[in-house]
Amino acid sequence: MNAEVDHTNQHFKGQHKSEAVSCFCRKHWIVLIKDFAGFIVLLSLLILTGIYFKGIYNFFSQDSPFINVAAIVIVGIFTFFLHKFFLRIIRYFLEIIIITNFRVVVLNKSLYLKDSKDATDLPKVQDIQKRQNGILQNFLRYGDLELTLSSSSTTKVLTNIPNPDYHFSKINQLKSEYLRGSLLRNRKKTENVKKENKNHPFIEPTFEGSRTI
């Protein structure tokens, strides 16, 4: 006998009991290029400070309160940008796109300021489009997935998805499986109702003849 696994809140808050995560991904690393470029500049400045330490030390050692305050301000700026960079990387790891057997969930989370979730039910997805335009997107294998919803004709766009071919086919596959499963469930339900009604004295006479009380 197979015991049903309880997936409630297993991988994300709001996960249903029978909702299993099929796959998940984070955005392509291209979204971090700007932040890494800034970090490399910061690191280079720190290394240059180390290399030309004597000259920098002589400059800031001058008996001038302005220069001393400037030194603290520069230290403060370095500290701020270092924190900003690492919090951005942490946010990158916390922003996840999850594809389950029921829906597509986009977790948009940061450590302090953001905690949002966007879920799209698979049966509501009418159309999926994969967009991979340009040399960079094709060379680095990332792109956008556009989900058109049947209910309101709105579209949801998942941007900078790595390996979009895989996720495109995955969503299609899971959507078909969900609809097939839903069809089978409805058919079984209808058959069960018909079986029950067949033996009921008050409901629809059969071909063998109506029952009399």
Partner: peptide, 20 residues
């Protein structure tokens, strides 16, 4: 990397300001 770089920056900047 986050923890170690922050500690290194905090210590080195304090020492630097002390000496200047």
């Amino acid at each position: 990397a986050y923890i170690s770089l922050i500690i290194v920056l905090a210590v080195s900047s304090t020492v630097f300001v002390y000496y200047i």
